[in-house]
Design a protein around this nucleic acid. Structure first.
Lengths: 188, 188
DNA sequence: AGGCGCATGTAAGCCGTTACATGATTCC
DNA sequence: GGAATCATGTAACGGCTTACATGCGCCT
């Protein structure tokens, strides 16, 4: 019924009111860490949510050529969000471009293979520091210990991000070692 | 130029010949661990790859109502695969349904929150054991130490799977602890 | 007799990306 | 004067999912 993008938007609006534009920007940091969408998709989804009375808008003064709309979640919207969170998770198909490349690593020359892993290392490492910084900020707020406060959920998800990126960074370092060993063996 | 699905298919065909049907089944184990597609998509992609001479088919005898086609990668196809592996990785947008749910966990009752985390724990744990089993099998083969052998890449990617699932399992266990602590604080 | 596995294909529709369109204000 | 930010929308297109279609051989 409610699409995943709609659930994501409800999740953001449950934490505060937003315009379509500011929702689109939030699909950068922090929501963009685990979900993303373009504004063209967001405006349509908001209209669809409003048709079903899960969100409501009021017109505010803004800088655009058309009226600026501020959206808020409704009681029905909060119910729909809760249902989404508590409902069954239908495992969506995995599509991991990085692993796909690694899996065909055997076809390329040693230099390309090393470069591939090094780039992956750098990406994961930079994400890791971003997560760590944000986690430190969130953890400093006592609200992040209150199970019913949004920051509690932010803290748990950021902790997950830190752990997974740490694992990815370690994995890349380990792969560089394996590549070195294999190249050494080749040289013999 | 070459879509990601096409790259995935080239990656499989570089390891051996397949029919469209068997490719579709492989989008279960092990390729399905990091990529997946339906047969309806695969048949079209194979035709498109063949138009560009990246794969070639020969008709073999089979059980279907139409001629059964066995596909093999061509030299040009191998080149295209290498280019894909060595080329820039344009970071595709993240869409992580599990994290999305966790991030809105603060809206639901404690029981639903715990159930959400426990289901995630179970999913990751079962994937972890699957990866560990397969990694043990692959590692036992001496070819998995040869950088130019497919099993080398299989071993590295499986190691990544084990590490990431281990991190996810640990994360879920940690979250269950955090939930218990937060509920204890609420009871006071 | 009916269901499952082999085997290939088409078609409708949804979701997501990219590009087009508009227009005021602020900063360089 | 030109670029960036705010702000909302439409349209074309491609990728992915779901469903429809066909038909043989094997097992129960």
């Amino acid at each position: 019924m409610t699409s995943t993008l709609e659930a994501a938007l409800l999740g953001v609006l449950a934490r505060g009111e937003h315009t379509g534009y500011s929702l689109a920007r939030m699909m950068g940091r922090p929501v963009g860490y685990f979900w993303s969408a373009h504004h063209s998709q967001i405006y349509g989804a908001l209209a669809s949510l409003e048709d079903r009375a899960l969100v409501r808008h009021t017109v505010i003064e803004g800088a655009g050529p058309r009226p600026t709309k501020r959206y808020a979640i409704t009681a029905a919207g909060l119910d729909a969000l809760r249902e989404f969170v508590a409902g069954e998770l239908v495992e969506p198909p995995t599509r991991d471009l990085e692993t796909l490349k690694m899996w065909s690593m055997w076809t390329v020359d040693p230099g390309s293979a090393r470069a591939l892993v090094e780039r992956a290392y750098a990406r994961h490492a930079s994400r890791l520091t971003a997560y760590e910084t944000e986690l430190a900020e969130v953890s400093a707020d006592p609200d992040s210990r209150d199970r019913t406060h949004p920051l509690f959920a932010s803290r748990l998800t950021l902790e997950g991000g830190v752990r997974s990126r740490r694992a990815a960074v370690d994995w890349c370092a380990w792969m560089l070692g394996e590549l070195a060993v294999a190249e050494g063996a080749e040289a013999d």
